[in-house]
């Protein structure tokens, strides 16, 4: 009996080792361990074994079964691994083929620049406010200290609809509207489309965008204006950006300034972009003129504030090194796809 079992076991293991695939292994399993398998047959034949030998024979059968099962499992794992390896090999692809992309649109660079600006100011506690593009002369000029026949009206060649209604030449009328509502303090920005009667060329467009900022509160100073715009410039143009305030004149601010920042291309050393000066003019600003505050119903003895205005296209053209403003309005997908 013992010999028979040993021989059975040895044969089974030899068959297992020579099995070529999982099916063959299964066959062996069935042949040996299945209901009609050889080993099962031995167990079935136990009734013919004398009772005193039965435990011993049973143990031997179990040992043989365990050994076969172990071998089967071992071989199965080996085979499975081999098969997987082969499958993986077959599945090899040329990974250098180009990636598959779904059609995606691109944001207009002007919009991206605007969102970047908005993000900085929203982070600084500014609320975004809209205003009408077709505007009353009163808001666009009069309340901003630009009375009838003021030369500034000429400087900002205005598109008129009627004597009193025009296409706004700046986003500043939104300032006047917000101030007039009288909810103080004010900390707002107002981006939007503005119009001036400039013929279209590489640097001019009759329609462009500005972003206006206004802060009104007790005790706001020119120093606060400097600090705010300095912080803005570092956030927007980079940590190392320096700002320079130059005296200037705007009818609705006093004192007024133009702000230059260190050229973000050369860092201030001087390059083609900054025409060698190391500085780039970026915005106009100033302390809100007391007369403007008064006209909008705010007591200039109690409240002070500052305002600033940024030309969006200017920022966009500089930031993306776009050399012709007309590209912004042509909407050629070969242009837009670059952003």
């Amino acid at each position: 009996m013992k010999e028979k079992l040993e021989a059975m076991k040895a044969e089974a293991i030899a068959r297992i080792e020579s099995a070529k695939d999982l099916d063959a292994l299964n066959e062996i399993k069935v042949a040996m361990l299945g209901k009609k398998g050889e080993l099962t047959a031995v167990l079935k034949g136990m009734k013919d074994v004398p009772p005193e030998e039965r435990p011993q024979v049973g143990q031997m059968v179990n040992e043989a079964r365990a050994a076969i099962e172990e071998k089967l499992e071992e071989e199965r794992t080996k085979l499975a691994r081999m098969l997987r390896t082969e499958k993986l090999k077959r599945e090899t692809i040329d990974v250098t083929l180009p990636g598959r992309r779904s059609l995606r649109g691109h944001r207009h660079p002007n919009q991206t620049a605007l969102e970047d600006l908005e993000r900085v100011f929203i982070g600084m506690g500014y609320e975004v406010v809209d205003g009408p593009e077709v505007e009353y002369d009163r808001y666009n000029f009069e309340l901003l200290n630009i009375p009838a026949n003021h030369p500034a009206k000429d400087e900002q060649d205005t598109f008129y609809i009627t004597k009193d209604i025009l296409l706004r030449t700046q986003t500043s009328p939104v300032q006047a509207r917000v101030m007039e509502q009288g909810k103080l303090p004010i900390r707002m920005i107002s981006p939007g489309r503005v119009f001036r009667s400039d013929e279209v060329d590489a640097t001019h467009s009759p329609s462009f965008h500005q972003l206006e900022g206004l802060v009104i509160d007790r005790g706001i100073t020119f120093a606060d204006l400097k600090g705010t715009l300095g912080q803005f410039a570092r956030e927007f143009f980079g940590e190392k950006t320096k700002v320079k305030f130059r005296p200037h004149h705007f009818p609705f601010t006093e004192p007024s300034a133009e702000v230059d920042i260190t050229c973000f291309k050369c860092g201030g050393k001087g390059c083609r972009m900054c025409k060698g000066s190391g500085w780039i003019e970026i915005l106009g600003c100033g302390m809100v003129h007391p007369h403007v505050l008064e006209m909008c119903g705010i007591d200039p003895k109690e409240y002070q504030g500052f305002a600033f205005g940024i030309g969006l296209e200017r920022v966009t053209l500089l930031k993306y090194e776009i050399d012709d403003m007309r590209l912004l309005y042509e909407n050629d997908v070969r242009f837009l796809n670059q952003f």
Binding site: I122, M124, G125, Y126, E127, V128, P185, V215, A223, T228
Partner: peptide, 13 residues
């Protein structure tokens, strides 16, 4: 150079 003092405002769209 300083920053505006006074009450904090919420930035929003």
């Amino acid at each position: 150079v300083s920053l505006p003092k006074g009450e904090a405002t919420v930035g929003k769209k």
